[in-house]
Design a protein around this nucleic acid. Structure first.
Lengths: 237, 237
DNA sequence: CAGTGGTCTAGACCACAAT
DNA sequence: TTGTGGTCTAGACCACTGT
């Protein structure tokens, strides 16, 4: 059973996306929405709060709530950085993964710390190349603990690891911490992402968490600098 | 008058920061917090929701709420990406700004669109070099509309433009849309940020908004790639 | 079972903007 | 004054976890 505020959230988001509510236009006031969705004001508010935090709406006290006009005119693939399961979802599943390395190694101090396991515990060591329409775009190094995420195979890695974790293992992925930086490219980057030596990569270091608070994945995604950008919307409390 | 949920939010955040609530430890349940802060459960919940969204807490239904353990061990200056007024605030005001260009130009199509003004309307054209302890770290190109933000002078630009906008003009800065990408460096970058030709920059394109929904600033911040990284925490709804 | 968080209600009063 | 969003209450019932 989906929560009512999520239904309202999705419905209003749909209306914004499909221009039933137009950019900079006013949406119905909260009491009207309460009536329409047959819910209390707190519930409507919770739905609207989510949209405000996502940068789809802004509100003016005493005046109303309005649709944000967002401007993304870019020749790069623009990824909303709030999307947790970003990669395959943002591209509508038009991606393929090629497994370059798949082995078990002993966790070093950094991996152990970030996965909340002991140093020298075994971890999967995975290197994958992600492609869209056969164009390589991300070189991704991933570490996971086999004791938490058992049964990873090359076939799982070629498909969606996240689907495997949620659908097969029955866990729920809850959150992620992402650190973004620009780096000069190394030989692997240049080879697999078809970069010149002077061309950089955009690296995202990620720790992903299950809803029980346990970190299950530690990864470094090195993006072709020219094909990608990440957009974030932030509001002040 | 500060809202009660913000007081609770700040108090609990303080306790986490000062280790009164320890990493991975459980914090008091919501009813206890209601009693302590003499408030209703919805109010306590709202405060906790903010902390969950910031990645300081996680909750397990049926069990309790716990302090997130965050890992940031880096040799770069790590900026929490949700900080709106990032630059000077994150570095505790140890920054200086050197104004390299300050002129008026006619808005081109892109600037006009992002500042929600007409093409060829006048805009401030500002180029500043930001320094920490005399080390250059960001080259920042900024466009603003003089009709919305009047009275910008070189002195304002050397200090905090955001303080000027909020304290002197009496506006409230509400939100920002930020797009992050890696770029090869150009001659200006190399000169001012002291980069080799093969070294990249991390560019953040930003549109900043007032609380009335108007965009007031359109900027490109080109960061020295080796000195910076940005960390974001995202949760699934 | 008791204890926890997740959702929801039906109001209330306040702050702010436009008229 | 009216209409809007901002905050807050005092409950209620549900879902999940551990004993």
């Amino acid at each position: 059973m989906e929560a009512k505020y999520k239904l309202i959230y999705n419905e209003i988001k749909d209306r914004i996306i499909h221009k039933a509510y137009v950019p900079n236009g006013q949406i119905p006031d909260e009491l009207s929405l309460c009536k329409e969705f047959n819910s209390s004001r707190m519930t409507v508010k919770k739905a609207l709060d989510l949209l405000v935090h996502e940068g789809m709406l802004y509100r003016k006290r005493g005046q109303g709530s309005f649709v944000m006009e967002l401007n993304t005119t870019s020749d790069r693939l623009n990824i909303p950085e709030r999307e947790l399961l970003g990669l395959s979802k943002s591209t509508h599943g038009k991606t393929k993964s090629k497994v370059l390395e798949f082995s078990l190694i002993f966790a070093n101090e950094k991996i152990a710390k970030n996965l909340n396991i002991k140093e020298n515990d075994p971890v999967y060591n995975i290197l994958r190349l992600r492609l869209i329409k056969d164009v390589p775009y991300v070189l991704e190094r991933t570490y996971m603990s086999p004791s938490l995420i058992p049964g990873i195979t090359e076939q799982v890695l070629t498909g969606s690891v996240y689907d495997y974790i949620e659908d097969t293992l029955g866990y729920r992925i809850a959150s992620a911490q992402k650190t973004t930086r620009a780096c000069t490219s190394n030989k692997d980057d240049q080879q697999y992402l078809q970069l010149q030596t002077y061309e950089p990569v955009l690296e995202i270091e990620q720790i992903a968490y299950l809803d029980n608070g346990r970190p299950f994945e530690y990864s470094f995604s090195r993006h072709h600098y020219d094909l990608f950008e990440f957009t974030l919307y932030s509001v002040r409390y």
